[in-house]
């Protein structure tokens, strides 16, 4: 039996702060609230549309290259606009596909954690990003108790 909520970390841990999503996913894997499933991958993929249909709520955990705060948390509206590359599928587009083809009824959220270094081919978060990870985790744990 699957949980009601899925936390889906997105990013490449070999590219510094791009690994914020998987890092937060790992935190939750280590200490996971009841009814919550956790997964992580390099990027969103077409079959995630199918996965979306199996949950009441899905939160995508991603790094963000923009923003003043430590993180943003928003509900995603479906948008069928498509991208120009198989290497980039955006949450609104995944949600559209999930609704149209896989009868998904759940809600999709994106937690975007501010990162700074996406270019170095190295493991590990920058210091500021690591602090943002802490704040994001605290927020998400709070949100999950209410969700």
């Amino acid at each position: 039996m699957k949980g009601k909520v899925l936390l889906l970390g997105i990013g490449n841990p070999s590219r510094k702060d791009d690994g914020l999503g998987p890092a937060l996913a790992a935190r939750f894997e280590a200490d996971c609230p009841e009814g919550v499933d956790v997964d992580a991958n390099y990027q969103l993929s077409l079959e995630d549309a199918c996965t979306l249909s199996e949950y009441e709520k899905v939160v995508i955990l991603d790094a963000s290259a923009k923003g003043d705060g430590a993180f943003t948390f928003e509900e995603v509206e479906p948008d069928p606009a498509k991208e120009f590359s198989t290497h980039l599928i955006l949450p609104p587009s995944i949600l559209s596909i999930a609704r149209e083809f896989f009868q998904a009824e759940g809600l999709l959220y994106v937690l975007g954690m501010r990162g700074y270094d996406f270019e170095s081919f190295e493991e590990g978060l920058t210091e500021v990003a690591a602090a943002n990870l802490e704040e994001s985790e605290a927020y998400l744990r709070g949100w999950l108790t209410e969700a």
Binding site: A23, A26, E29, A30, D31, E123, G124, E127
Partner: peptide, 12 residues
Amino acid sequence: HGLTATQHPHLF
């Protein structure tokens, strides 16, 4: 021991 992520920063 259920450790899949570390709480302390990596020293690298």
